[in-house]
Amino acid sequence: MNRRRLAPLLVALASASAMQMVSAGPVLNGFDLAGASIPIQAIERGGPPKDGIPAIDRPKFVSATRARLAEEDRVLGITLDGITRAYPLRILNWHEVVNDRFGTRAIVVTYCPLCGTGMAFEPPASTGVSGFGVSGLLYNSDVLLYDHTTQSLWSQILSAAISGPLVGTTLTAVPLTHTTWADWRRRHPATEVLSTDTGFERDYGRDPYAGYDRVQQLLFDVQHRDGRLPLKEWVLGLRVNGAAKAYPFSVLERTVDSAGRMTDTLGGQALLIRYDRANRTAEAFDAQGKALTGTLSFWFAWVAFYPRTDVLRAP
């Protein structure tokens, strides 16, 4: 979609945000913001109300051979406890949260279309078994989740509760791969795939955010901007031992070797970065080959949360 065609979406969402921004009072979308760990005035309504974007609480899965996906479709892939699953973005664009189970382990799969961030978590026991939902609120243009048990708000990128009874509690990240369906299926031919039989009527063949990644504009405000990279440059963001670093795809193109690899050190730890040009994905591993929980995102989102982040430079 070109900029002219995207303009109505930009105007509508920005207008809705302007009218509904926090102006007074510690309650928004039904959430008590008293004692929030982030500036209350920086929390915005995204447009839909609480649960206006419905989470998938009873996910169904189909085999790879039955999945109706194009080779280039993006998916979030997880392998855990002998179970391998793919979550197509064409579904997550409409739901943003999937409350799933890998054997006995509860896993919350999340996606923010505005930031391009797919992240999965193992929720703490204090959130109970009722799962997470979409609050309809944003911080730094990123989705704020909430848990049904305590009604605490959680920042996806911070991976922590920012208000409510569990404020300050962190989420345990689960490594995932953000790649194409062709790449994930090649790696895991026996993968299960989230079914479009979600219990909701949505046009999963249509991308409601089509063209957003190519427009150098934001629909919602962020607390920090940084001109080192274009707003929507894709980066692999890593945090190791308190140190943050962004690996821009445009720099990885010129930095990795013929096998798509490069080594680096972050927070005193040796890293191996793998970059796949064909499938536009990047992953990080420690010296023992264990996958690290990196985050693929637009540059603006990563630097909004980690203003002091280092950035990989071309040699």
Score class of each variant (00 low, 15 high):
Arg4Met: 12
Pro8Tyr: 00
Val11Ser: 15
Ala12Met: 12
Ala12Pro: 07
Ala14His: 14
Ala16His: 09
Ala18Asn: 03
Ala18Gln: 06
Ala18Leu: 10
Met19Ala: 13
Val22Pro: 04
Gly25Tyr: 01
Gly25Leu: 05
Leu28Lys: 14
Asn29Ser: 11
Gly30Cys: 06
Ala34Gly: 11
Gly35Thr: 03
Pro39His: 10
Gly46Leu: 12
Gly47Trp: 02
Pro54Glu: 02
Pro54Thr: 01
Ile56Gly: 00
Arg58Ala: 13
Pro59Gln: 02
Lys60Ser: 14
Phe61Leu: 11
Thr65Met: 09
Arg66Lys: 14
Glu71Tyr: 10
Glu72His: 14
Leu76Phe: 11
Gly77Glu: 08
Gly77Asn: 04
Thr79Ser: 15
Asp81Cys: 03
Asp81Gly: 09
Ala86Gln: 09
Tyr87Thr: 00
Pro88Leu: 05
Arg90Leu: 13
Asn93Met: 11
Trp94His: 15
His95Ser: 04
Val97Thr: 00
Val97Asn: 00
Asn99Ile: 03
Asn99Ala: 04
Arg101Ile: 00
Gly103Lys: 06
Gly103Arg: 04
Thr104Pro: 12
Arg105Cys: 01
Thr110Glu: 10
Pro113His: 07
Leu114Tyr: 08
Phe121Ile: 00
Thr127Gln: 01
Val129Trp: 05
Val129Ile: 09
Gly131Thr: 05
Phe132Pro: 14
Gly133Pro: 07
Val134Asn: 15
Val134Ser: 09
Val134Ile: 12
Tyr139Glu: 12
Val143Trp: 01
His148Lys: 11
Leu153Ala: 05
Leu153Asn: 07
Leu158Arg: 10
Ile162Thr: 10
Ile162Met: 02
Thr169Gly: 01
Thr170Lys: 12
Thr177Arg: 12
His178Trp: 02
Thr180Met: 08
Trp181Thr: 03
Ala182Glu: 14
Trp184Lys: 02
Arg186Asp: 15
His188Tyr: 09
Pro189Asn: 07
Ala190Leu: 10
Glu192Cys: 05
Leu194Ala: 13
Thr196Gln: 13
Thr196Ile: 12
Asp197Met: 11
Thr198His: 05
Arg202Ala: 12
Gly205Ser: 10
Asp207Val: 11
Pro208Ile: 02
Tyr209Ile: 08
Ala210Asp: 15
Tyr212Ser: 14
Asp213Thr: 11
Val215Asn: 09
Phe220Lys: 08
Arg225Trp: 06
Arg225Ile: 02
Asp226Arg: 10
Arg228Leu: 07
Leu229Trp: 08
Leu229Cys: 11
Leu229His: 12
Pro230Ala: 03
Val240Cys: 00
Val240Met: 09
Val240Gln: 01
Gly242Lys: 08
Ala244Val: 08
Ala246Glu: 06
Pro248Leu: 01
Pro248Arg: 01
Val251Ala: 15
Leu252Ala: 09
Glu253Lys: 13
Glu253Ala: 04
Glu253Tyr: 04
Glu253His: 09
Arg254His: 12
Ser258Lys: 12
Asp264Met: 03
Leu266Asn: 03
Gly267Tyr: 00
Gly268Ser: 01
Gln269Thr: 07
Leu272His: 01
Arg274Ser: 02
Tyr275Asp: 02
Asp276Ile: 00
Ala284Phe: 07
Gln288Ala: 15
Gly289Phe: 03
Lys290Ile: 04
Lys290Cys: 02
Lys290Asn: 14
Ala291Arg: 14
Ser297Gly: 06
Phe298Ala: 13
Phe300Leu: 08
Val303Arg: 12
Ala304Gly: 03
Pro307Asp: 07
Pro307Thr: 05
Asp310Asn: 09
Arg313Ala: 13
